[in-house]
């Protein structure tokens, strides 16, 4: 399986690991990779190939059409949804896998070159295909993207025009508070090129911004993008209306009684917990109360308008 997209000696490509028979049971793909590296280090032989090897492999594999895409604006229940999909029989969830995310990022960092754009589209399709092949034909594949993934929705839809997609979002104040409590990697964005693209600013501007402002501007953009690109193939859902069954129904999945039991028991557990023991506690009220005036002002300035578009179809 391709487990990361990297550059070795100036050559862009993929690192691969033997993941045969490994269940992708952790909330995030890279957590599974880390577990396998620790428990069965022999599976990671440090294999690196350039991208042409991926395309050669793609020639040999039947094409897998994902059953659904999960986009989100961060800290809004997407991991819970991914875990629900994972609880289905014969389902795999590719949750924010490095190889997928880094190829998506290249659309931004290498943007403007139509040949590269087509190439990255082909590579993205191939990497999802390679990750989705688990030795069975009846697998339902769900792909959960990182928050920045929504900014590439048009390109993703060009590759998979028929795959239904959900966009999960949450009140911007609660989202910013949550992201400040535990700052995610996407918000740090090492050289700031991704966030500059998303926020319509420059990397120098992003470097000057507080984390709160980066977050407010970014989620405002995520909301606006989802709203503008919504169509018959999309479901936009607020965290406070989150319903796994309605999402599965939207993905044309009718869970069995056993699957529903597994989903129900899983949804009582904190969704990002690898061990699956920390119980989920609703926290919207706490987050609202702990928000600073600055967070409220930034949310109002950069995210509330697009949020209201999602909620009411109009900016306020």
């Amino acid at each position: 399986m391709p487990v990361d997209a990297v550059v070795v000696d100036g050559r862009p490509g993929l690192t691969w690991m033997n993941m045969s028979g490994i269940e992708l049971k952790e909330p995030f793909f890279q957590q599974t990779v880390d577990r396998v590296r620790e428990q069965e280090p022999w599976r990671d032989a440090g294999l690196f190939t350039e991208f042409d090897a991926l395309l050669q492999l793609d020639q040999l594999l039947a094409r897998v059409e994902p059953a659904g895409f999960i986009f989100h604006s961060s800290r809004c229940g997407s991991t819970l949804v991914a875990n629900g999909c994972r609880a289905l029989d014969n389902a795999i969830v590719l949750s924010e896998a490095n190889a997928i995310e880094k190829l998506l990022a290249r659309f931004i960092t290498d943007g403007g070159d139509p040949v590269k754009e087509s190439l990255y589209s082909v590579l993205l399709r191939a990497v999802v295909n390679a990750l989705a092949h688990r030795g069975r034909d009846d697998v339902r594949v769900f792909v959960k993207f990182s928050p920045c993934g929504i900014s590439q929705l048009e390109r993703i839809r060009r590759i998979w025009p028929d795959v239904p997609w959900v966009f999960l979002y949450r009140d911007p104040v609660e989202t910013i508070v949550s992201n400040m409590t535990t700052v995610p990697a996407w918000l740090l964005d090492e050289d700031h090129r991704i966030l500059a693209h998303i926020t319509g600013t420059t990397p120098a501007d992003v470097a000057e911004m507080s984390l709160e402002e980066r977050c407010a501007r970014s989620i405002g953009n995520f909301f606006a993008t989802a709203h503008s690109l919504a169509n018959d193939n999309s479901l936009l859902l607020n965290y406070n209306q989150l319903s796994l069954t309605s999402i599965l129904d939207f993905f044309n999945v009718s869970p069995s009684a056993e699957e529903l039991d597994r989903i129900a028991s899983g949804s009582r557990i904190y969704s990002k917990e690898v061990a699956g023991v920390r119980e989920f506690v609703p926290d919207a009220e706490v987050k609202q109360k702990s928000a600073s005036d600055r967070v409220r002002q930034l949310a109002q300035q950069f995210a509330m308008g697009p949020y209201n578009l999602l909620e009411h179809g109009e900016g306020l």
Binding site: V115, L119, R125
Partner: peptide
């Protein structure tokens, strides 16, 4: 040469000898 179709008719060619890509 590896060829991959894309976007309803276009394609990407990869020359495995030179590692060059062609749209």
């Amino acid at each position: 040469v590896v060829v991959t179709d894309f976007d309803g008719g276009e394609g990407i060619l990869v020359d495995l000898n030179t590692k060059k890509y062609y749209q």
